[in-house]
């Protein structure tokens, strides 16, 4: 009976998340992407290895140095962040939409779980996959260049914050998605162009001033440069601005996702 009361307290006290439920969602999410590792962990490893070979080794030799670093070393931080962004987003959008499509999202909706717990659970799952891929890609990059971490705090905090932000955005995509196509539209037509234009392969100093100003509207530019600062110690933009924008976007998107869940958007009729 005492145990029963504990569950009841957990179920109703939304100030404190239901830890068992949170662990369950996180465990389920991690088990999902590790079970299908051929679809989730191997493709980014292959894609990034190709980037390292083609852009880093082959083309990079002809480009020479960028901001004082050889081209391979310069693009590695951006490529790691590209993996973090795409995998955090894809994990949560596809998992949430899959649960909606298969209707097993209802298992959570009929349970005494707060929307906050559902949201945090999916975010942690997305962060776990993004960081797992980041570690794999970082390990692969060591075959092509020497990496020395300039600022550990910046590396970890930017990687985690970025994974959190894009996990939330993936969840919002999953909430709105009605078909499988809807899950791939944003990554294809928004995320990929923004990532390519977000300073992964070049410094915005190379751009004419007008386009450099336009580029600063791209949030991925801040993410890539802040992470590059953490690894190499160089950045095209102010680190304070990068943290400010990243934290602000994360908070706004978190509140938006929470509101959507509370309103039952896409999951309740």
């Amino acid at each position: 009976m005492t145990q029963l009361r504990n569950y009841e307290a957990q179920a109703t006290d939304f100030g404190n998340p239901n830890w068992v439920a949170l662990q369950t969602i996180v465990r389920t999410e991690i088990r999902r992407f590790t079970r299908i590792w051929v679809q989730t962990l191997i493709p980014p490893a292959i894609t990034m290895t190709l980037y390292f070979i083609i852009f880093g080794s082959l083309i990079g030799q002809r480009i020479g140095s960028m901001n004082g670093f050889d081209y391979m070393a310069y693009i590695v931080p951006g490529l790691i962040m590209m993996s973090v962004i795409t995998n955090a987003y894809a994990n949560v959008s596809s998992s949430f939409f899959g649960a909606k499509f298969g209707k097993f999202i209802e298992e959570m909706l009929v349970s005494p779980i707060s929307n906050q717990t559902i949201l945090v659970g999916y975010i942690v799952g997305g962060v776990a996959r993004a960081l797992a891929v980041a570690v794999i890609v970082t390990g692969l990059s060591l075959f092509f260049t020497d990496l020395r971490v300039h600022n550990v705090f910046a590396v970890i905090s930017i990687a985690v914050l970025t994974a959190v932000l894009f996990s939330i955005l993936g969840l919002i995509n999953g909430i709105y998605a009605k078909r499988f196509d809807d899950v791939s539209i944003v990554p294809t037509f928004v995320l990929t162009p923004l990532t390519y234009l977000g300073g992964v392969f070049f410094s915005i100093e190379l751009l004419p001033s007008f386009w450099a100003s336009i580029a600063q509207l791209n949030p991925i530019l801040y993410v890539v440069n802040a992470f590059r600062f953490g690894i190499l110690g160089v950045s095209d933009i102010s680190l304070v601005w990068a943290y400010g924008i990243l934290i602000s976007l994360t908070l706004v998107s978190y509140m938006m996702a929470l509101r959507l869940l509370q309103n039952g958007a896409g999951v309740r009729s």
Binding site: N6, Y7, Q10, A11, N18, V20, A21, Q23, T24, I25, R27, T28, A99, G102, K103, F104, E106, E107, M108, S111, P112, I113
Partner: peptide, 21 residues
Amino acid sequence: NFNQFEKVENILINTAGYHGI
């Protein structure tokens, strides 16, 4: 409305977990 790609026992363990058990 359960996950068709999940094992029977895991479905029940997850549901219990969602209820805080």
